[in-house]
């Protein structure tokens, strides 16, 4: 039994190792890109909307509302990053119901990659918004002695973010597989349904946590000032 899709290697050449994680990630990316392109081909800026446009606008408006609520800032700069996090993770988790599909988010490498993206994005947004000096000053606040602890806090935060998502997705898949062996008829169906719910919740939590970290990096100095 493979715990992670990383263990399913499709192609390997030197250090290049194409696993199921990458394959399903590309599939998800292709699916999302095609859907986005198709659904936004005939957008209307009038008051009469198609159902698809209405759905997309509700989704985007919902994400913008969440970002605005957490950051208390203009949500537009954060939308591509946070929105893509949510949509990618939610899509991967929802597609886990498809037989044969292994969600890339069940790979610790994927969640680590996403956590690293957040890890890098937080200082980038902070520096972009507040400047080098003001952002780095946060690490020696309230006293320079706390600099190592602040750095450890940042790393731990990133690790926790990665492991949380991985653990939830992977555990759902593993538990489903075990239950399928033990009680093969109806119970796994409920577990899969529960997986869909927890998958959406995990996507929401990951996106909201990333937004909280971004908000912390971009608004702390302002509050102190």
């Amino acid at each position: 039994m493979n715990i992670s899709p990383d263990q399913t290697v499709l192609f390997e050449f030197g250090f290049i190792r194409i696993s199921a994680t990458l394959l399903f990630t590309w599939l998800v990316i292709a699916l999302l890109a095609v859907l986005a392109w198709r659904m936004t081909r005939y957008l209307s800026d009038d008051t009469a909307l198609s159902p698809w446009q209405n759905l997309l606008e509700a989704l985007i408006e919902g994400i913008l509302g969440q970002i605005r609520e957490v950051t208390r800032q203009n949500p537009a700069p954060y939308l591509p990053f946070v929105g893509t996090l949510f949509i990618f993770i939610a899509t991967c988790n929802l597609l886990s119901i498809v037989p044969g599909f292994e969600p890339p988010t069940g790979s610790l490498s994927t969640t680590t990659a996403l956590a690293l993206c957040v890890f890098v994005a937080v200082p980038l947004y902070g520096i972009q918004r507040r400047g080098w000096r003001a952002y780095l000053k946060d690490y020696v606040e309230p006293t320079p002695i706390l600099l190592p602890l602040n750095i450890i806090g940042e790393l731990a935060r990133t690790l926790a973010l990665a492991v949380r998502l991985y653990g939830n997705v992977m555990s759902g898949a593993v538990v489903g597989a075990i239950l399928l062996i033990i009680t093969p008829l109806f119970f796994p169906v409920f577990m899969h349904a529960l997986d869909l719910l927890t998958g959406i919740i995990q996507a929401y939590i990951f996106a909201v946590l990333a937004t909280v970290f971004l908000a912390a990096a971009t608004t702390v100095q302002e509050k102190r000032g």
């Binding site: 990383d6 250090f15 290049i16 190792r17 696993s19 994680t21 990458l22 990630t25 590309w26 990316i29 999302l32 890109a33 986005a36 392109w37 659904m39 936004t40 957008l43 209307s44 800026d45 446009q53 997309l56 606008e57 985007i60 408006e61 537009a76 939308l79 591509p80 990053f81 929105g83 893509t84 949509i87 990618f88 890339p104 790979s107 490498s109 994927t110 680590t112 990659a113 996403l114 690293l116 993206c117």
Partner: peptide, 29 residues
């Protein structure tokens, strides 16, 4: 390798969605 590839994949996805989803939708709105 997978981590790096996933980072690149994610960044590509960000660009694609920004290009084909967020941009047109927010522009229309």
């Amino acid at each position: 390798f997978t981590v790096v590839a996933q980072i690149i994949n994610f960044l590509i996805l960000v660009w694609l969605l920004k290009r084909f989803l967020y941009g047109p939708i927010t522009q229309a709105m």
